[in-house]
């Protein structure tokens, strides 16, 4: 057990180190952009005096490493500074939106992950049958279609023609949880369609990869029916690659959903990022990038740990 905790601690430490390196990159990439924040704020017509005054006010006259350390020490305690555009705290702008994004990602994941893995097991069991091929074609089609296209098709059928679900997923504070689920069903479904294929195909491939193993033949020669061979003997040994793909897709659900947010007018963090980039609101951009990086790192660590936990050799050392 001690070695396991050590492994996890090591992963976490390496993750933090990676995050630190990324924070440096994020900060200095913004530094590299032509012009500085003061010019961006005051626009083309600003005089030198005005610029100098603003720079002093924002601390821009200090050398870059000092500013980086200031920014980092703030970020560590969750203070990303103030927006250049609205003057609000960055945390206020993106905090609620990030929660919304997490909610939508969780909603989609709760449906997509069990669905994709179950489907993967079934197509592995019925491999090379008509069902297998149809499932493959359908999921591949959905992953190959642009998200906005899928979103509009869903709106067309479920909102415009049948009126079952709202086309716009705007949120307000006094909604019940059920209302919330109803309101956000279509964006969640779009995301489910986008991420299912990947996870399903990996589940299928990971299982089929194991079917030539001697222990699978042993299970068959013990008289186990095909579904038991797959579920009891192949699946428990196939988790590591499946968990990795799941983690990758979860990261995508959090960081890559801006198109879906736009289509359904959903107040998520993706939209804030796009807004901030177009308005050169650097503190917001930096904050979003750092949050996304942390998400990726955290999910990858989770996948590593998951792979370790499903490996009996590591779980039960000699």
């Amino acid at each position: 057990m001690g070695t396991l905790l050590f492994l996890i601690a090591k992963r976490l430490f390496l993750g933090l180190l990676t995050l630190l390196v990324i924070s440096v990159i994020i900060f200095f990439m913004v530094e590299l952009l032509p012009g500085d924040i003061a010019e961006a704020v005051l626009g083309m017509g600003a005089t030198e005096e005005n610029l100098a005054a603003l720079r002093k006010q924002m601390g821009l006259d200090q050398p870059a490493p000092v500013r980086y350390l200031n920014w980092l020490s703030g970020a560590v305690v969750g203070d990303f500074g103030t927006s250049l555009i609205s003057g609000e705290r960055v945390t206020t702008i993106i905090g609620q939106r990030f929660m919304n994004t997490l909610f939508l990602a969780a909603y989609a994941a709760v449906i997509a992950v069990p669905f994709a893995i179950t489907l993967g097991v079934i197509v592995a069991l019925l491999r090379n049958t008509l069902f297998d091929r149809v499932a493959n074609v359908v999921t591949l089609t959905s992953i190959s279609s642009p998200e906005f296209f899928l979103g509009y098709i869903l709106i067309l059928y479920f909102s415009v023609q049948t009126g079952m679900f709202p086309a716009i997923s705007s949120l307000n504070a006094d909604m019940t949880f059920l209302e919330l689920l109803h309101r956000t069903f279509l964006p969640a479904l779009t995301l489910v369609l986008v991420v299912t294929a990947h996870m399903m195909r990996m589940t299928r491939a990971a299982i089929i990869n194991l079917l030539a193993s001697p222990y699978i033949e042993m299970a068959r020669l013990k008289g186990m029916p095909p579904w038991k061979v797959i579920v009891k003997h192949a699946l428990p040994n196939a988790w590591a690659p499946i968990i990795n793909v799941v983690a990758l897709n979860l990261a995508y659900l959090i960081t890559g959903v801006v198109l879906v947010e736009v289509v359904f007018v959903y107040p998520g963090i993706g939209q804030s990022l796009v807004d901030a980039v177009s308005k050169r609101d650097f503190p917001v951009v930096q904050a979003c990038c750092l949050i996304f990086a942390a998400t990726f790192i955290l999910l990858n660590i989770a996948a590593d740990v998951g792979a370790i936990l499903t490996n009996p050799r590591l779980r039960h050392p000699k």
Partner: peptide, 11 residues
């Protein structure tokens, strides 16, 4: 089977 190490399911 020939190799018990490979023919027992590790999980």
């Amino acid at each position: 089977a020939q190799s018990a190490a490979a023919s027992f399911n590790p999980a």
